[in-house]
Amino acid sequence: MSGEAQSSAEYIQHHLVNWCAGNCDPVTHQAAGFWAFHVDTLLFGWLLAGLMAWISFAVGRVLTTGTPGTLQNVVESVVEFVQTQVRDIFPGSNPLIGPLAITIFIWVFLMNAMDLIPVDLLPLIGRMFGFEYLKVVPTTDLGTTFALALSVFALIIYYNIKIKGPIGYLKQFLFHPFGKYLIPVNIIMTTIEEVAKPVSLGLRLFGNMFAGELIFMLIALLSLASIFLLPFQVVLGSLWAIFHILIITLQAFIFMLLTIVYLGMAHTSEEEH
């Protein structure tokens, strides 16, 4: 890369650094505090959100109840799929759950799918334009996964309080899961249970995508070590990419499903326990 000899560790490390703006360390280019922005994450997040919004707008404007066109057909099948999940899992009705679920599913899927673009392609193009660091998969950034997870967490708390009332929600902390004689234990248990929801959501997605991206990088290192390993790199890279098609879809689906489940739990009163 760029003429100079580069060790494997340097290659990997270079690929793990975000394009940073704001409060950044000038030497390591890592964020030095909270007030730093990962421009690449935001940029690709916006691009994919824009793509999604544009397709939704294009389809939503020319809807027909008759025979749908190709694009409408595709979008319809996705919407129906999500609608079925929501209907099966979510008790009662809330007009926000469907759009929330489909947005999570598709946006996360698209951001994960950036993984399938050859690992060096976009950073190389970025370097031509003078951007030294570029991490193209927004979901390998804790900022993205926790943005989603904390938004869902906020909604969980909001609906818990809205549906059960502040007292009802408090009772859940006091008397769940061991009844009224172990209140201190209950408080700790329920708090852990509640906090585990966003943490597991955010870390699961981050961990899967980060590990996947790392393995793409390791495979890419093969031909860097020796040009004779190029066939291996092609075969392994293809296999991993094919496997990753499953992973990215699955992770997006799991995130959506857990969101529906958690919000469904927030909508059910657990008095009958």
Binding site: F37, M52, S56, L148
Partner: peptide
């Protein structure tokens, strides 16, 4: 980092948009 806030905002706008237009 503050990327989190940016992504939360994007997410909120996107959910709103998807809800109303799709």
């Amino acid at each position: 980092t503050a990327t989190l806030l940016g992504q939360i905002l994007t997410f909120a706008v996107l959910v709103w948009f998807i809800q109303h237009y799709l």
